[in-house]
Amino acid sequence: MKKYKFNRPWEGYAFLTPWLLGFLLFTAIPMVLSLYFSFTQYDVVTSPKWVGLENYIELANDPRVHKSLQVTFTYVALGVPFQLIFALLLAVVFKNNIPGIRIYRAIYYLPSLFGGSVAVAILWRQLFNKEGAINQLLSLVGIEGKNWIASPDTALYTLILLLIWQFGSPMVIFLGGLKQISLDYYEAAEIDGASKIGTFFHITLPLLTPMVFFNIVMTIINAFQAFTPSYIISGGTGAPVDSTLFYTLYLYIKGFQHFSMGYASALAWVLLIIIAIITAIMFLLAQKWVYYDE
């Protein structure tokens, strides 16, 4: 496929101008300032005091940082794959024009409309507490359930379920990507007598890889920064015993509740570096498996 070059060099920048301006005005300044804060002791109210690498050294030895990294990595490693597989499966089912499809799509999308509303916290408790719906179901088959949401060994998994439950966004993106695949491919496959599963793996999936890649990258970036689920369900503490202490929740506790914004900024930049490395690896690997039908 030949490379498509048709614009004058400045036209690229012209289309990029809003973004460039926005980056300089609204993004770059806060980012640079937060980088500066990360080398200071800054209690939000009085002016920052330069402390060099102190915050970074302190966080390397902070057991709650280690714990929160462990919690966050577990959340990402378990939540993201399940959410995406679930979203992809349902997108494939919902692509077809079966009767009632619009209602079905809407029903399955409903949980994602909720976001991090305060109501979610209470709903999740109604499901997973001692007398919650889950335990009532379990008791029908004679199992005595536990207090899922408040036990240190299960609390995080209820939050992972919450992430999977709100799978609507990646599903919608998959649906958009599926739509983009030209019908010609399917017609050709049908003529060749390919099976449904074969068509999925040899046509649908390869052509969907740009969207799969997008969903993987963005879901991982967002899951690393997950804050709201634990904030609303643990009441902002990471309870029980830090088992739901997401990295950004700890950052929030330090910055907003303990007035250590310098330390919080250092935490933020460490997370940025972690996410950046993972994203860079994903982009490198992408050259091997993402297929652009250009």
Partner: peptide, 15 residues
Amino acid sequence: DSATTTEYSKATLED
């Protein structure tokens, strides 16, 4: 027990 206490630690008055 500890789990119940955690569950209700942030409950509002009515709850």
